[in-house]
Design a protein around this nucleic acid. Structure first.
Length: 591
RNA sequence: GGCCCCGUAGCUCAAUUGAAUAGAGCAUUUGACUACGGAUCAAAAGGUUUCAGGUUUGAAUCCUGACGGGGUCACCA
């Protein structure tokens, strides 16, 4: 961690020269901009004021002192307009290179004894997964990997919304229009099969409402009185009362969906240590509500419904239990939070949920805090933005949803086309080719969704397919394959112990960049932000490709340079493989 | 309407969380394979960071206001 080392050395130097102890946060240390000479820069302005001196005076005093104290670490310094730039001696970088050039654990932290739960995916069992779910799945999976690399004991969980009125809608539609067909009998993937009936329900519902309105009923009443809707509500009632044929149908249809989800999850690489089903947890939380009433956190209105008053916190009054005693969404979440904590006792719990639920999650955490629950502070909502089309939000009712399976298929088929055009893997078997197409197609898709800041909504244009050139997954994968190919042509010996030649720009750039990997990993974990890694890996790959074009590796000027560049290449490939793994993306040896 | 989020090149995104001349990719134009992989590299062009004020040595970043876009305010989940 060069920036940290420079910072610490600066703190010491200031103390010994001026007798004042600063903390590391009082001033900034950045990598030096390429147009200036140096590797790391101390920004002097914030110090000047408190030390009552000029930037030049401070810079000279600090620079001289730091070089005198650490002549083996710092080579030189210069001051430009309040910026103190240091050049680092190669020895530090060479030492790092020797230790880590093929170390898969480079940059990762040792176990810290903390347990984190990451809940993600959380699908409904009434329709297939779409592009928004993909962002959720990739984010959740990636965050889990990043936290693991930072020393946490990570537990991936998923809550399946397998119950409720929306599920009954598919069931009603199938009863009415299904004619006993099944995914097998129609050759349809189970989740799509059920999803189609969900659409059928909405079509039929719309027609019935229109019919009632035509007969003179007002729209709001018609929406409540449409026979198909009443049927669905009756079915939900029957389900809750355990009516055998309803439960039977529900089980059958859910099974179809799970088979479909399973296939998709396997393809995209989502897995969970524990899956919760809402049908098994929706009654939880009621006793917590009772506890809250006793504690005075909640209050009961005359009609029997239970509420919490959050107006003091700038929010509203929020219902936590219906007047008939049944639970609402938040009641279940309160219960599930408790259950998870009872089962796993984690220090933190991360919910990967879209930003349309910001308010809900705020309320959830606030309630847990007011109840004095031990896990309240550990709740963290990883709120991500919607994936939108150029025309706006995706809407299932308007058929403007980008289906996950379709998109994955398309990505794989594009990667097949590209690969075949290039014709570099003619020695691959059919099975190897299929795996390669998968690796590249999914790599492009995952990288596309993970390279932007999770908090921001992003736009996906289905008209233009996802790119395979430039700032993309395949670019990074290509760089890895290229390095592996070069490395196969030579042997790395154990030399370089006393490397004395100066480092060329391309060589030093890569070493400095590689050195930052550890900091990037930490940043990604602290900010729950995989895009930090995606951006970094692209920069690393790009820097390598420039280096590759400018300097020969296997035909270097001498053996020492050759070994240096082989090791640098190996380090870069190691970091790419490690970083891509955190994004859930595989890297091929050849492509 | 209340509350929350967002507005950066033609398009999609960055900017080390307040620092030096705001960076990439795509698209456009030009150049580079008998040196290790051209899914690459080198270069050109593209910006009043929505607008108007303010704080600061320093603002895309912080504050105020306007304009534009989105989310949310269910006894739905």
């Amino acid at each position: 961690m060069l920036s940290k080392i420079v910072r610490e050395k600066a703190v010491e130097a200031i103390e010994s020269v001026y007798g004042i102890r600063f903390t590391a946060r009082d001033f900034q240390v950045n990598p030096t901009k390429p147009e200036f000479e140096g590797d790391y820069t101390i920004v002097l302005f914030s110090l000047v004021k408190q030390l009552n001196t000029s930037p030049d005076q401070l810079g000279n005093a600090l620079g001289a002192k730091m070089i005198a104290d650490d002549p083996v670490f710092f080579e030189s310094f210069n001051i430009i307009k309040g910026f103190l730039n240091f050049t680092i001696k190669p020895a530090f970088l060479i030492d790092m290179l020797n230790r880590h050039y093929q170390d898969p654990c480079f940059g990762k932290a040792p176990m810290n004894g903390k347990k984190i739960m990451v809940e993600y995916s959380s699908p409904n069992t009434n329709k297939p997964l779409h592009l928004g779910h993909l962002r959720n799945n990739f984010l959740g999976r990636s965050i889990a990997e990043i936290l693991k690399a930072n020393g946490y004991d990570v537990l991936k969980t998923c809550i399946v919304n397998d119950r409720g009125i929306h599920i009954c809608k598919s069931m009603i539609a199938w009863s009415r229009y299904g004619n006993q067909s099944t995914p097998t009998s129609t050759g349809t993937k189970g989740d799509h099969f059920v999803g189609d009936f969900y659409v059928k329900f909405n079509d039929a519902y719309k027609l019935e409402v229109e019919g009632l309105v035509a007969k003179g009923m007002d729209k709001a009443t018609a929406e409540k009185e449409a026979p198909i809707m009443l049927e669905a509500q009756q079915m939900l009632f029957d389900w809750e009362n355990g009516k055998p044929e309803v439960i039977e149908l529900w089980k059958t249809m859910n099974l179809w969906v799970y088979e479909g989800f399973d296939t998709t999850y396997k393809r995209i690489g989502s897995d969970f240590a524990k899956t919760y089903y809402e049908s098994e947890t929706y009654l939880l939380g009621k006793d917590t509500i009772e506890l809250g009433i006793r504690k005075g956190v909640f209050f009961r209105k005359e009609d029997g419904s239970v509420w919490i008053d959050l107006t003091a916190e700038g929010l509203d009054e929020k219902l936590v239990l219906r007047k008939d005693g049944t639970s609402v969404y938040i009641t279940q979440d309160i219960g599930l939070a408790q259950k998870k904590y009872d089962e796993f006792g984690m220090d933190q719990s991360i919910y990967v949920i879209g930003d349309e639920q910001n308010y809900h999650m705020k309320v959830l955490q606030l309630i847990c805090k007011k109840l004095g629950l031990p896990y309240a502070d550990g709740i963290h909502h990883l709120s991500y933005g919607m994936v939108e089309l150029p025309t706006g939000k995706m809407k299932s009712r308007e058929g403007t949803v980008v289906d996950a399976d379709d998109l994955v298929d398309e990505m794989i088929s594009i990667s097949r086309k590209h690969t075949q055009n290039l014709g570099k893997v003619n020695d691959f078997s059919e099975a190897e080719l299929d795996e390669l197409y998968n690796t590249i197609g999914l790599g492009a898709l995952k990288y596309f969704l993970l390279r932007v800041d999770p908090k921001k909504k992003m736009i996906f244009n289905p008209e233009e397919s996802i790119d395979f050139h430039g700032f993309t997954g395949p670019f990074v994968q290509y760089t890895h394959a290229r390095i592996r190919s070069v490395l196969k042509k030579s042997i790395i010996d154990s030399g370089l112990k006393d490397y004395k030649l100066p480092l060329l720009k391309g060589e030093k750039d890569l070493l400095l960049l590689a050195e930052q990997y550890e900091v990037i990993l930490k940043q990604a974990a602290d900010g729950l932000d995989p895009s930090a890694i995606a951006t970094y890996l692209f920069q690393l790959a790009q820097t390598f490709n420039s280096f590759y074009a400018a300097l020969s590796i296997n035909n270097a000027e001498n053996e020492e340079k050759k070994q240096l560049r082989l090791k640098i290449s190996s380090l870069v490939a190691t970091i790419i493989a490690s970083g891509m793994e955190m994004l859930g993306i595989k890297v091929p040896e050849k492509m």
